[in-house]
Design a protein around this nucleic acid. Structure first.
Lengths: 339, 339
DNA sequence: TTGAGAGTTTGAGACGATTCAAAAGAATCT
DNA sequence: AGATTCTTTTGAATCGTCTCAAACTCTCAA
């Protein structure tokens, strides 16, 4: 209502709109006296620059969209915080969007972000193949894939999930487990597929001595983890796996809860290892072993790549950055199991 | 780069820009034949509407800013999800900003949001008194306070924190505790102050039979909770409180971890009760008793109030909505203590 | 044949800031 | 005083879309 514009400021300060704009953007080229007068007018009127109009003229915005698979997963929150910390230093803003694993929601968010002409988009896509993203990039919105496969057509940052799965598998095997359950989400999610492939390869390396079971669920939530845990707890002991490798910590926490409610001891009756090493993993009923990813670094690197592309689109060569996960061993997989 | 505009579409479809705009906004008033022609042109060119220009012309944006105290606290994530679910139905967007308890960051976010001319702002302010917010509202950006005091100058939604503190205190006293520690953050945060006042009143009602200790920390994080826990664990048993009421679940989880590392049993040696009842509370080392707040409802109601104000600013009367918390008793405070 | 009325389409302003060539003013030098 | 250079200030054009009064096209009735 009472939104003042540059023209009113100019009038009050008895200068032209061009001068007000200069005071706002390049104060050093304006004489101190005029500058002072303009600042006073701004303060008196309570003028706030209209970023929308500015953006329309200048052509690019200072906000970056970050579309994640699940905001309630602390992993993504940490990635977001990493990205935000970098954005802050470039007085940009990160707007966090939640696809909740739903391609439709993801699509709507992407449309909205493109309509807003954001500077660029960081995304952990729901599905491995996404023609949308390429079209988007083709129309001029830079896209960086976060924790996702390198298609070569855009930048990406990821953690070697195959390696993570392998480390986890090797660890369980080394601890004496011979019957391992992989608790995963939909295999359409690349992270899940890779982690499974990793543990498979570790199992394969054990020369048939180890059996790998696989359970898939539609989502990677605490509730799903609990549900799988319930089913496992209900199995007769001899059919039960002795260890569970969960595709993320949320599922692992749910799985762990199910063990507790059914009186199964962790790790004695069943060892558990999660993925992501979110802060809550260490605070769980039984402190959770987990494959750690450099969460904030992931976010920071993603936005760095984006800013690099924006700064010089011509020179820019797409890059794929891959980090290595490492294993954090805690109580939930600490004991040796005698085969 | 290849961003097409309405004019190019108009050219290709051999109509005027006005007609294209009509197709976009009021397709029913355009003849089917023309409409079809325009749609084809849009598709052929890969035209994406520039929401920035639209917004400049129309005057108000479809995005709402939500400024929270701590994104890594699942409580706020849930509030955000509640808000987002409503926004979705009004094809608006919620942009989530993190003040991280820092007035400077909060201020910068507010500035940015105002410059973007957002439709409105939902905020959990860092400090109780914030003249900024009133100025902001005065300049025409509606503000709804979330989980915050009712100043009467704007709408607010909150949960009765005093009652929450009281419930928690009464529960601990009823369980036989006579030496209770309140683990809180800075008292400048209203929630903390109120929860403390609540437990105080419960203690006062016990007629001098109960002693209340208070520990304050700069932040309400897991780490701070752990730090306080360390100090408490180091006390000689006779000086130690028998129960801790933590200002939020994050602190409670940290506190609990400290108990575990120092071999103190929960709840036998020390009972713990948290606040918020985040999902991870139930999955903790010892399932955590907690004061539950209607997290999503808080977010949903906040944005409802905002939309109401935006829809009809003249008629709108500011309202204060207050919800009641309730107590969830779990293992961490389940036992009776014999005085 | 004309006029009324309904249904479509048009295109010239906004919206608010930035840009930049050009004008104005001030300072310095001959 | 006039020429030259440097510093400030100006204001019209621009970004992409929406709005709305006016113009155009039909159809139908008088």
């Amino acid at each position: 209502m009472a939104t003042r514009n540059i023209k009113e400021v100019a009038q009050l300060a008895r200068v032209s709109v061009g001068t007000v704009s200069n005071v706002l953007n390049r104060p050093e080229i304006v004489s101190p006296a005029t500058r002072e007068r303009v600042f006073e007018a701004i303060k008196k009127l309570g003028f706030v620059r209209n970023e929308v109009a500015r953006h329309l003229r200048v052509g690019r915005s200072r906000t970056v969209g970050l579309v994640v698979l699940d905001v309630s997963n602390p992993f993504f929150v940490d990635v977001a915080q990493g990205a935000e910390s970098v954005a802050d230093d470039h007085d940009s803003m990160v707007v966090l969007c939640n696809s909740a694993g739903d391609p439709g929601r993801e699509r709507r968010h992407l449309d909205q972000l493109e309509q807003q002409r954001v500077m660029g988009i960081l995304i952990t896509p729901v599905e491995m193949e996404s023609p949308w993203l390429e079209e988007l990039a083709g129309r001029g919105t830079p896209v960086v894939l976060v924790d996702s496969p390198a298609t070569g057509l855009q930048c990406s940052v990821a953690v070697d999930d195959r390696l993570g799965g392998q480390i986890a598998g090797a660890h369980l095997i080394e601890r004496g487990h011979r019957r391992i359950l992989f608790v995963g989400g939909p295999t359409s999610i690349r992270q899940v597929a890779d982690r499974h492939a990793g543990v498979s390869s570790a199992v394969a390396a054990a020369d048939g001595a180890v059996e790998l079971l696989t359970s898939t669920s539609p989502t990677l939530t605490v509730a799903e983890g609990r549900a799988v845990g319930e089913r496992v707890a209900a199995l007769p002991p001899e059919e039960r796996p002795t260890a569970a490798f969960c595709a993320n910590d949320m599922m692992a926490l749910g799985f762990l809860q199910a063990m507790a409610t059914h009186g199964l001891r962790v790790p004695e009756d069943l060892a558990i290892i999660g993925y992501d090493d979110i802060d809550f993993a260490a605070a769980a009923a039984v402190p959770l072993s987990s494959v750690r990813q450099p969460r904030e670094l992931l976010g920071r690197t993603a936005i760095d790549l984006l800013l690099e592309e924006v700064a010089d689109p011509e020179q820019h060569r797409h890059r794929q950055v891959i980090f290595q996960p490492d294993l954090v061993i805690r109580e939930s997989s600490a004991r040796r199991r005698d085969a």
